[in-house]
Computed example of a mutant assay.
Amino acid sequence: MDSKPHTDNDYTSDSASEHPESASYGGAMFSGSQDFMVAGGTFHNVTNNYTTASTVPPDFRSIPLGDIYLQNELELDRGSHTVGHLRDRGFVRRVYSARVVGLDGNLTVAMYQGDGAQKEWREDILRYTWLRNPYFVQLWGITTSSTMHAAVFYDDLIPVEQFFELYRHSSILTAYIHGYCNTEFEVTWDYSYSSFKRSLDQGQCTFWICRSTGRLRTEFRPSQGPYFPWISTVG
């Protein structure tokens, strides 16, 4: 698969994302103030205008929503038919296989909509920006608008539950996949603990198979799918 990003700035959605330092400065200057006097002039607090722009990480592409072509919704939970239905928290997170204008091959897009969606999106983006390692899902770019937000990940990811489902009729292959996933997770656990002093728990993670490499990818997010006891106790 060839999904190398362009080197130009075609994906910059607005001038604020081209100059993130201006956005963050506007959001931090005179924080919490309203109207006040400075050297005889009246200044108005415009911090809210930068709320969205200041959350755009400067090291990742800002992609226009119209450049994302959603294809297949990825299913983990047969009851909800979607990844990450969090209706009790007021918002919904759906994950899709998608195409992005200008790229060859599919990427994976997580869409956030509803009450509290922007807050959840921000928190997830924060995790993805500092976590750059082949054992975990890797952020490629982001999308934000007045109605929805998105995180775009490298590669076409397959829910690990789907992978198990494909080979459920073969006990040999099922045993092999169990062993493989367990080995991959042990390496991921060791990296997480040695780097961040964080012990990974299966129930707090969502697992994917990277289509182009066949490797296991971990996401720091509770899975909405069924629990699979294929990970042995580590640590």
Rank of each mutant, 00 (worst) to 15 (best):
M1E: 11
D2C: 01
H6E: 09
H6Y: 06
N9R: 13
N9Q: 11
Y11S: 09
E18T: 10
E21F: 08
A23P: 00
S31H: 15
D35L: 08
T42I: 12
N49S: 10
S54G: 03
T55H: 06
P64G: 02
I68M: 03
Y69G: 09
T82G: 14
T82Y: 01
D88N: 06
D88L: 04
R89S: 06
F91L: 04
R99I: 00
L107W: 13
T108H: 02
T108V: 03
G116P: 02
A117I: 01
K119H: 10
K119D: 11
E120P: 01
R127F: 09
T129C: 15
R132L: 10
N133W: 01
V137F: 04
M148R: 05
A151V: 13
A151S: 14
Y154N: 11
L157W: 07
I158Y: 04
Q162S: 14
F163H: 13
E165T: 11
C181S: 08
F185W: 06
V187F: 05
Y191E: 08
S192Y: 07
S192L: 14
S194T: 08
C205G: 05
F207H: 13
W208G: 02
G214S: 03
L216E: 02
T218A: 10
R221D: 06
P222I: 09
Q224G: 15
F228S: 09
I231N: 01
